[in-house]
Design a protein around this nucleic acid. Structure first.
Lengths: 232, 232
DNA sequence: ACTATCATAATCGTATACAATTTTTCGGGC
DNA sequence: GCCCGAAAAATTGTATACGATTATGATAGT
């Protein structure tokens, strides 16, 4: 047998990635047996991984009914985004004007990776863009803030996959550059609205279009039935 | 057999209370067998409860080495308190001037329970005082903020038990009344420093005395050796 | 043809068994 | 008397078994 809970981590990481990359879409059932067979592990281990994912609300576990990929409601999405706005605000307040040269270098590398992926049309650029915010949180030196940001970013990705438009041309690379510039120069007055608008663009716009689409979707869903009645 | 995961919750709640009331002190080993026998459940269930507690960092699980009550370092304590300051700030910013009459009533009831317990010398007053902050967070209507506050409050209690002085006469009842008054009247200018100082008094003072005690403790620890050298 | 009810299959919740690891204890050597 | 090493005990990690619950499909009644 292998050592440690290394197998749990592997399954946890694998499922997490699959969820965040939308290979496993919200609502998908996650039976313990099937996952266990896929990863070559027993239900005991799979269960632990699923519970870990549930603790950061990426999967939903209902008693006697199994686990499924979380499917946040619009209300939950709005709550998440408003809290994320606040927490990101805390992060940049702690970092503004306090970045070390090494940290600046790290951020530039992160942005460049994002840009390369974006230019080449690889889908990982989304993950890189999300990671940018996580790296910022880690740079505060507060493990707690980093922990919370990790959860918030993960859940944001889930929600964007659910409600966001399929391919929305993303200008976040330049915005990320601007954010770093303000953080370095300590220009708080410019930094604050910049971060706010950046998140607003990425998050809230996705949600607003989602509620429009959802309403339209309901009508579309009913249309065939109405026509069937008229036609029959 | 019973139904649902009701047994897991019972063990989780029991252990949590025991930890927060310092019946189980930081560092105490938590063997799965012993707990299972005590609660009349198998290791499987106990394990789940321990993992839940680990996910809010009240217990520490190390691979192949079992679970023990978490023992936060001074550094972790400082991180926690600084994040809690920020999150409490978010909470009152959302509530200031927006409390409904029903909410005010709920808060007054909470404070009164705290005061009664304090006057009668019952130790639950600590739990009531902590719960006050949790209730505030819940009143924001943000499940996420409430969730985070629950974790922060729980861990704060653990840390106060570790580093706080044994019996420090607490004036939080009046401070809580003042906070509610400001929240009702919407007096942000007074509210903000009030909350900050309140937390500073409860949290940081405990930590500062702790680091003093710790230094003294090291000297005390070395004293016998020094004397032994001199005496021998 | 449609719905209701029951049998069957799938899946979860918990207990238990066994392997792997850590901790403790005991005996020999310095 | 003290330290080091190996066997024994204790404890965790994982797999499997079985009862309980829910989902599914078939059959009979209307």
């Amino acid at each position: 047998m292998k050592q440690r809970g290394e197998r749990v981590d592997a399954i946890y990481a694998g499922l997490r990635l699959a969820i965040l990359e939308q290979v496993l879409q919200p609502g998908t059932k996650l039976p313990e047996d099937a996952i266990g067979e896929q990863f070559g592990a027993s239900r005991t281990v799979v269960r632990r991984a699923l519970e870990l994912l549930a603790s950061e609300e990426l999967v939903d576990i209902r008693p006697n009914r199994g686990a499924s990929v979380a499917k946040p409601s619009l209300e939950e999405a709005r709550d998440l985004f408003s809290v994320r706005q606040d927490v990101e605000h805390l992060v940049i307040r702690r970092l503004c004007g306090r970045l070390t040269p090494a940290q600046v270098k790290r951020l530039e590398a992160q942005i460049e990776a994002e840009e390369r992926a974006h230019r080449d049309g690889r889908p990982e650029y989304i993950r890189h863009a999300a990671e940018f915010h996580l790296v910022l949180a880690e740079m505060t030196g507060s493990p707690l803030l980093a922990r919370y940001m990790r959860q918030l970013v993960g859940r944001s990705a889930l929600i964007l996959g659910l409600y966001g438009r399929p391919r929305w041309t993303d200008c976040s690379v330049q915005e990320h550059r601007d954010l770093v510039a303000c953080l370095v120069s300590g220009d708080w007055e410019r930094l604050e609205p910049l971060m706010h608008d950046h998140l607003e663009a990425v998050l809230s716009r996705a949600i607003d279009t989602a509620s429009r689409d959802k309403d339209r979707g309901i009508r579309d869903l009913l249309a065939p039935y109405a026509e069937a009645l008229r036609g029959g």
